[in-house]
Design a protein around this nucleic acid. Structure first.
Lengths: 239, 239
DNA sequence: ATTAGTTCTAGTCATTTTGACTATAACTAA
DNA sequence: TTAGTTATAGTCAAAATGACTAGAACTAAT
């Protein structure tokens, strides 16, 4: 009673074939805006070199390999397309609509990542890999616009509650830099004094003795993040 | 260059075969505790009738069919095993660890559901389908204990922020019943007066002219939920 | 050397929210 | 009629929040 499937199935076979499984990642990093210079959200996309959606931009992704976990697949994908090691990586959602891909049914398990700006600055960029502002995306392949929208929604949501902003910064940072992250993601100005009061109230942040020199104003104190990512079911056992 | 896979693959073939995709659901409903009579969280499990984990209890689930969306598959699954139509259904997580299932690599996309107590009361129960208290589960098949734990965590989390408690109640309810839901899920007592003040502050609830008669005390006013589930990326277009 | 310009940082003050608690209302059962 | 129960409104202090003020500490210009 064996049922046999083929990868390049014709229409008749497709009805029987199981949906194929793919992993994609939405990778966020902060880069200075070309115009204002203030940090804004960017993400890398890859150009599709084959049908469907040939020549359109898409999220980095690929098939799941048999010997890697979902998270490992996302991590590998990220490394292969951008050369980056993510500071933060979490599952976003499994997208499985029937008509996401025209020819073949594909279920995509999507992860989202945050990378530090220092790393993001030296990320690979090429003819087929380019960074875009997250709030100014053109039409992407598949349902990837909707996926990015959802990832942005999750990022804003997590930022409002959890302590996720630090993963978009380096090891040391000023409170003003943290505020700039919030302002970039939430897209609104925050009162500097109230923001610092609130954020200093959390235990996940630690003063260092250092100050950031070089600005044309009073040098701000540097802080360090001491909390843990502490997330979904997969990362629970590793504190 | 066609690669051919078989469903009952041997070890050699397994290395090539793509992971199989399954859908499972964690279904929560309130039922009165046998001891205290207060509402507590219960969920239905199915007895496995074949290996692996034969005779152990497991979450309802099954393979994804080619012509149904992930959510439809979860919904169908729920209906087939319990006869229930969920009041609330949301994707929980995609579990894809390498060794979740001993023989074969399985990626499970898990949904979680909330059903009303009136419906839950007439849910099918049989030799192979039984309801259990969510906080007193024995050892389940696969990684299903961890999945239930994570679903409970999400439920508690969503309850603390969003307006999800109402989906565990019928169309009309008293504020004390809402409080009992919170107390059951969060597992702690809440001050009745403060709770009602807080919950009456939200716009998603509406007074009715009706009162619940029959208690041996002042009859409480009945309320109605007017908000929307408003959730993940799949339900966004349908407000 | 002085001054202006900048951000950093601590603090004030009124408003809102929260938690603990009191008191009355409205029913049932004895 | 009274005791028992929960419903409901309200009080009060504590805590959190939002708008704002002012001095501190640096750089750059005069």
């Amino acid at each position: 009673m064996n049922t046999v499937y083929a990868t390049s199935a014709n229409v008749a076979e497709r009805r029987l074939a199981p949906p194929s499984l793919a992993i994609s990642t939405v990778i966020f990093a902060l880069r200075p805006s070309e115009t204002s210079g203030r940090p804004t959200l960017w993400l890398p996309l890859v150009r599709r070199i084959r049908e469907p959606f040939k020549d359109m931009w898409a999220l980095p992704g690929g098939p799941l390999q048999h010997d890697e976990s979902l998270q490992d697949a996302a991590s590998r994908n990220l490394r292969e397309t951008t050369g980056l090691a993510p500071q933060y990586l979490e599952q976003l959602y499994a997208f499985g609509g029937l008509h996401r891909s025209p020819a073949q049914r594909v279920v995509s398990i999507v992860y989202w990542a945050l990378v530090q700006p220092t790393e993001a600055a030296l990320a690979d960029e090429s003819e087929n890999v380019r960074w875009f502002r997250a709030d100014r995306l053109a039409e992407l392949a598949f349902d990837h616009n909707a996926i990015v929208d959802y990832a942005l929604w999750r990022l804003r949501n997590k930022m409002a509650y959890g302590s996720i902003a630090y993963h978009l910064l380096g090891e040391f940072f000023t409170l003003a830099q943290v505020r700039e992250v919030y302002e970039a993601v939430l897209d609104r100005q925050l009162d500097p004094a109230n923001f610092r009061r609130q954020i200093k109230g959390t235990p996940e942040i630690e003063e260092t003795g250092e100050y950031l020199q070089g600005g044309k104003h009073r040098p701000p104190r540097l802080y360090r993040f001491t909390g843990t990512p502490g997330l979904g079911p997969d990362n629970r056992s590793t504190p």
